[in-house]
Design a protein around this nucleic acid. Sequence first.
DNA 1: AGGACGACTCCCCAAACGGGTTATTGCAAG
DNA 2: CTTGCAATAACCCGTTTGGGGAGTCGTCCT
Lengths: 226, 226
Amino acid sequence: MTNFRYFPEGYDRYMQSIRVSIYEDNAKLRDLLELLITHADGFVLAGSHPDCRSVEGEIRTDAPDVVIMDIDMPGRSGLEGVRIVKETDVNIRVLMHTVFDDDDKLFTCLTNGADGYLLKKDSSAQLVRAVQEVYEGGAPMSPGIAHRVLEAFRQPKPSAKKEYNITDREQQVLELLSRGFSYRMIGLEISISPETVKKHLKNIYQKLHVQCGPEAVAKAIRERII
Amino acid sequence: MTNFRYFPEGYDRYMQSIRVSIYEDNAKLRDLLELLITHADGFVLAGSHPDCRSVEGEIRTDAPDVVIMDIDMPGRSGLEGVRIVKETDVNIRVLMHTVFDDDDKLFTCLTNGADGYLLKKDSSAQLVRAVQEVYEGGAPMSPGIAHRVLEAFRQPKPSAKKEYNITDREQQVLELLSRGFSYRMIGLEISISPETVKKHLKNIYQKLHVQCGPEAVAKAIRERII
DNA sequence: AGGACGACTCCCCAAACGGGTTATTGCAAG
DNA sequence: CTTGCAATAACCCGTTTGGGGAGTCGTCCT
């Protein structure tokens, strides 16, 4: 974190300011954001646009370090916007700024490459701090958002296994199947008859409501059973 | 965020203070943390321990709202510690506080249920703020940590697909296989002969270096090809 | 004592699978 | 313009898979 206070007054004229572009369809809010950026120390407004329709070109001419991106915009949403910005130049940091806090939009943004996710209800001061932080390689998120991101990592493993009543032995067989073992090889591996392997798999298919090996493996992995 | 300044002096005597337990093997740092918590407004020290050996019982008697957890401790690491705390009571927030910033330890913590991850190089003020934030349902993380968490969501999809030279058609066939379609059904679905389906799968198995359907599906899902 | 259930084994049998081989079409890169 | 490759299709042939059913043994719970 650069501590501006340790520099003499006016020092920032000699250092690189952070170039910020804004994408926000609401004119009033966009004006407010522009004001915020132009008046904050160390920032300069690189561009300001009401939608993402021409984002590829705008990014090239604006040459921003950080983009503040709304989601709900006419023509092309910020979900696409962030993907396009990142395809144009991965070094540009994209900070989402939206009212949406549903998992669907959140994780779409993240997979598309967003570097931060702020809700509009957060304060202006927080937004300015977030722009600084995202520029410095951080990942600012509203508290509730960060919490949901971490929740995505939690293991729903034991519950899923219990949900389908998969036994330890069945899980073991399924795991070997997913590693390319045939019934016979699985039998040799865990010292049971291939017929028993088959029986276990029959039970697994019933419990998971699937038809065949590949489908069972897919479901087991997606539900984190194996 | 509760704004204490709006309450009359001494108001916090009437409100619930946040109970904090500390797990930290370094005696000097532990003392410092104790001091920090006892002197901060709105916090009360619920317990302070040099390791996680008896964490189950301690959690019950201390009854903390928030646990500050080091990772590198003798006997039982904080990685296990966080898991055990969460198994004892999911409502207790666990804030990791460590020097480690490697992906391995980080993501182990997160899957084990950690609610925040601060590096020891962060300031005391940040730590106090983080305890408050984690108590309020946030997920405080050091900037670099948050960034790496978000990076984990980025799609390595196209690269993995390119890595193995899987074509669009092959991906489509593989996806249907993972949904329980037989060769014949896949053929009907995408209007090609089951023999062609077989041919595609033969190529897929070669490209992915696998033997059979289940293994191919497992690899494809894990490598995010499908 | 009886019942439920997990783990285990075996049989029959039809369908599905997977390896090998060969061949045509069409498109794109060299 | 030819070489390469994806996509298509077909054949043979042995093996694997998966759906039936029928049965033993041991443990845990009622």
